[in-house]
Amino acid sequence: MNEQTQRWFPNSMPAPMVDKYSLPWWQACAENRMTAQRCKSCNHAQLPPAPLCSECRGNDFELTALSGKGRLYTYTAVHQPVSMEQTLPFIIAVIELDVEGTPCKNPVRLMSNLVECEEADLEIGKPVHVVWEKMSDMVSIPRFKFTV
């Protein structure tokens, strides 16, 4: 089975709640593109998408393409279901994403999930890469796998 069509979480997981600042980022996700908001004034890259640049308070952004590679920053294995028919435990992970060619004062980290890993394999600092879970025609959610 192609990774693009694999499913790890049920449709009954909470849907993304978006505003005008985050919608473009989620729309890029729907095309399986990992991006960050890049400030046109100071070149700072940031997530989650916000109305203002955290470094210069500029408000003119573009979405800059990221490789979707990074490292596991921290995690928790959750043993209580968020929605029905969910496999337990599931892993909530903070991923530190690689950002090339942009001065980045703050890290670009993303709250996400690690999939297809045993709890025993969880180790902070290990390399990961994005995999996309197509929840519907409109919504794809970025999850991560350890890079072997």
Binding site: P14, M17, D19, M138
Partner: peptide, 19 residues
Amino acid sequence: FQQANTLMLAAMGQVMPFG
């Protein structure tokens, strides 16, 4: 997508899909 009508929902809306 659901519309986030408050700053709290906009912030949480970014992480709730991950549980």
